[in-house]
Amino acid sequence: MNSTTATSSLTAPRRLRTTGGLLLALVAVLMIGAPLAIYPLFLIKILCFALFAAAFNLVLGYAGLLSFGHAAFFGGAAYVAAHAAKVWQLPFELAVLAGTAFAAFLGLAFGTLAIRRHGIYFAMITLALAQMIYFMAVQMPFTGGEDGIQAVPRGYLLGIVDLRNITAMYYTVLGGTVLGLVIIWRTVNSPFGHILSAIRENETRVTSLGLKPERYKLIAFTLSAALSGFAGSLKAIAFQLASLVDVTWHMSGEVILMTLLGGMGTLIGPIVGASIVVGLEHFLSTSGLPITFIIGLFFVVCVMMFRRGVFGELKALLDRPRA
């Protein structure tokens, strides 16, 4: 991921910052008012995938690692959270925490293995490891095989707010997503985040400065896995379902597309991408057109024609000095 994603927040002009601030305020107002106009469950889906894509972007866009196995964290955490809420009858917060912790642990394990190899091998190893989790999910009894874990109780937020109310559930997920995005934003703009970008641009040079790139990559990968798991757990509880769909390699591919389509290496990009892909699938699901084919077509078009993604192109347009 070289020159195309090189613009970091350090070089972003002030004009973009103010535009971004205004945009953010607008989005905040829209998101708070949205359930009045749009079906909340659909919005929840967008939020969960936006967080998932943003978490994925932490490794692809900032650390330059192409993981082809993020579905394992998203879907794996969904199973754990659903099981915790349904069978162990843990409260909402603890169920989500259990899912997130599982994803973090899995991320640490995957990362430790995959970071031993570079570039293209990294992608293949993460894909293979995630497929292993998929086969386990198919066979293990607690996942419920093809049926998945159904009728997961939503419970109460902090023991008070009844989450069976869909609006309450929406605002809870909104809060969770914002929390996750703030963590990502803080990480990217910290010294740690700058070292990550430096590793992406020139790993040898970072090593020569006396830093250990492997350690940074592993921390970023684990954090990304944990946040993906957080998103997956929220989705499982809100939809009251954990199923095989979320652990398939198609899902790993979809999150790559969301990030690529929106613009990798930007904070807003993955959120834009996730909204487009989820919206598109929602629209296609009733049209009878083959979804997989169209997702593939989007991939080809993105890679061939606009590698910076929707937001990346927009940003480039704004960055261009006025004549």
Partner: peptide
């Protein structure tokens, strides 16, 4: 990523 997209297109 391109070949992944082509694979999805063909399969779909």
């Amino acid at each position: 990523l391109l070949t992944f997209g082509i694979a999805l297109m063909l399969e779909g």
